[in-house]
């Protein structure tokens, strides 16, 4: 698994669950309410990086003003400010077990690749965090910090934890949007490569009447027009979705239905998905 870009205050010890349970258990939160709660919890817990933007925080020695908040297998994520805007810094570090020359090449190529697909995704109309600056010397990407957003993972968990609520009906519109976004992305021949409910964010600020689906972490992304790759992309999401949120087969099928409705080439992709389900992500090489 690559680095999971889990943005949002939910990282502080599974606050997603505690938030949901501290609410009146009969009320299903809207996305906007959920974001508001998370931001409140973040500022209450004194999370200076998420709340204030690094005023007075010493930050890391290599990146003054930036505070580490997530470490993945391939990159570290910091929060801070960039030219007055709240920003996330994604730094790909070198792997000491690789040959230095190969390591340098791989790291730079991946940083470049991520910047490229983000640009491509935006051109196709997929909302994704705006990149502010790429430093190819240190393999750092400075990008927009989504403030009024929550991961779809936290939102699904929060909605499901409401006792007696009809979570299926409440989540339906969101799943529909996710399916549509994935369809647009695949129609633009972009393969995300690491679709999980943590990498699908829901953004909503006061200017937006409805939540918007924002895709993050294009670290494993690629460009391909093959139905095979698109099918695998969906398969990865299905696996991640069903293991993160047990007993949600029906919910996931809304995503697929919406995908089928909105994608131009959905027929071949869904066919491939069925194939991949039988054999797994890797192609069998016999003979």
């Amino acid at each position: 698994m690559a680095d999971k870009v889990e943005k949002g205050p939910s990282l502080e010890g599974g606050s997603g669950d505690s938030l949901a349970s501290s609410r009146k258990p009969t009320e299903i939160p809207t996305v906007a309410q959920m974001i508001e709660m998370q931001n409140k919890a973040a500022s209450a817990s004194g999370d200076s990086a998420a709340a204030g933007g690094g005023t007075g925080t010493p930050g890391s020695p290599q990146h003054p003003g930036f505070v580490l908040f997530k470490q993945g297998a391939e990159a570290r994520l910091y929060r801070g400010t960039f030219l007055g805007k709240p920003a996330v810094l994604k730094e790909r570090f070198s792997k000491k077990y690789r040959h230095p020359r190969l390591d340098e090449k791989l790291t730079t190529k991946r940083t470049q690749g991520e910047a490229r697909t983000v640009a491509r995704a935006r051109k196709a109309g997929i909302p994704t965090p705006c990149i502010y600056f790429v430093n190819y010397q240190s393999n750092c990407i400075y990008m927009e910090d989504l403030r009024s957003a929550t991961t779809s993972r936290d939102y699904i968990v929060a909605v499901q934890s409401v006792r007696g609520g009809d979570s299926f009906r409440a989540l339906q519109p969101i799943m529909d949007k996710i399916g549509k976004t994935l369809a647009t992305m695949h129609d633009g021949d972009i393969i995300h490569g690491d679709l999980t409910t943590s990498n699908i964010m829901l953004k909503q600020d006061s200017s937006m009447p409805e939540p918007q689906v924002v895709l993050i972490d294009f670290g494993l992304s690629s460009v391909s027009h093959l139905p095979e790759d698109k099918g695998v992309d969906l398969y990865v999401l299905e696996k991640a979705f069903l293991s993160t949120h047990p007993n949600t087969e029906e919910l996931f099928s809304i995503i697929l239905k919406s995908y089928t409705r909105h994608s131009r080439k959905s027929k071949e992709v869904i066919k491939k998905l069925d194939e991949v389900r039988l054999r797994g992500r890797k192609r069998t090489m016999v003979g």
Partner: peptide, 22 residues
């Protein structure tokens, strides 16, 4: 479609930042 992603200055800034990514 790109215009719909965000505010104009964000669209432009992202283009500028990723212009040498190929």
């Amino acid at each position: 479609s790109e215009r719909s992603v965000g505010r104009l200055e964000e669209v432009v800034v992202c283009r500028m930042a990723t212009k040498d990514a190929g």
